[in-house]
């Protein structure tokens, strides 16, 4: 655990700084608000009304998120494998090739189905 204590120290320091900055900016800056200032910025025209919760956005982003999750997990498995690769030698290689090939199948499918195209 001692290995993580310094991280905490640094994090607290950073957090202190960030919070301080946020408070400072509120406290120090001038306050001359008007309605136009408080509107969302939209190049000077009347802002488009926003639905609650930020509205909807393209499905593409979801697909990217899903793909990311899949690949990130794959990486999670690659790391311990890589670290201990020297111990596993050929067995490790074969197993990982199988693993990567399996993921590659899904990857190829997504690619062919246009899952990677951003339009």
């Amino acid at each position: 655990m001692e290995l993580y204590t310094p991280v905490l120290a640094l994090a607290l320091l950073a957090a202190g700084f960030a919070v301080f900055s946020v408070i400072m900016s509120a406290a120090v800056g001038p306050k001359r608000y008007n309605r136009a200032k408080l509107d969302s910025y939209e190049c000077g025209i009347e802002p488009t009304p926003q639905p609650v919760g930020g509205g909807r956005f393209p499905v593409k982003y979801y697909i990217t998120a899903m793909l990311f999750i899949v690949f990130d997990i794959e990486i999670i498995f690659l790391y311990p494998w890589a670290v201990h690769f020297d111990a596993m030698k050929f067995f490790g290689l074969v197993e990982m090739v199988v693993f990567i090939a399996t993921v590659f199948v899904a990857y190829a499918y997504v690619w062919r189905r246009g899952g990677l195209d951003w339009d």
Binding site: A11, A14, A15, F17, A18, V19, S21, V22, M24, S25, A26, V28, G29, P30, K31, R32, Y33, K37, L38, D39, S40, Y41, P47, Q50
Partner: peptide, 26 residues
Amino acid sequence: LALKEDIIPKAADKVVFLIAPVIATI
């Protein structure tokens, strides 16, 4: 920058709007 006016837009979700830069910084 520190001396600039601090604007929180009307449409913003205030709490998250304030926390976001902190989360980005730490």
